[in-house]
Amino acid sequence: MADPTPTIVAPKGDKDYSYLVSPSTVQEQEIIASLKSKFPEVEVKLKQKGRLECVKFPREKLVEFCTYLRDSLDFEHVTCVAGNDLKRAWEVIYHISSYKHRCMIQIRTELPREDPSVDTISQLWGGADWHERETYDMYGITFNNHPKLERVLTPEGTDFFPFRKDFKLLDHWKIDWENKGKRPKPEPMVSTDTRFGDGNG
């Protein structure tokens, strides 16, 4: 017996967000002060108005820090989670924004080269789910406790991580001018996608 058929309920009585129309009175400095008092070892600075920055963030603190951001400082929205290959290390860059305070914080976390893993924040913000999957897909950075860490853009069964710096692209082909200007024949691509095992239709 499968799950019972879900029923549809009109979203009445949900939280009213109309206060977002006017900006809050909380200044960026207060946010920084609050973060500094809670996490003294984390270095947060103000880049420009509404743009906070947080470099060399310790990866063990991430979930704790993000929970504090979400629950106490009203950072409701995760804009982006980006992986990066610094060659000496891996890096995950989080951009988390607050609709209420109208500001955005950028968190750069370096991961050691030999252990590219970090705790997931997709339990906190559902929007981070696929960004983390994509980062795994492209860089091979694993996110602990992620509900479904699978390939999302490349087909299942891909055995390489295409955005790593050591993944070499093919050279740009040259037109064969001697042979009446023909382009070289492309090699046939073989799909390894196995996601459609479920019959037709």
Binding site: I175, W177, K180, G181, K182, R183
Partner: peptide, 8 residues
Amino acid sequence: DRNEKIFR
């Protein structure tokens, strides 16, 4: 044919 679109 794509090769027709290669011009000297």
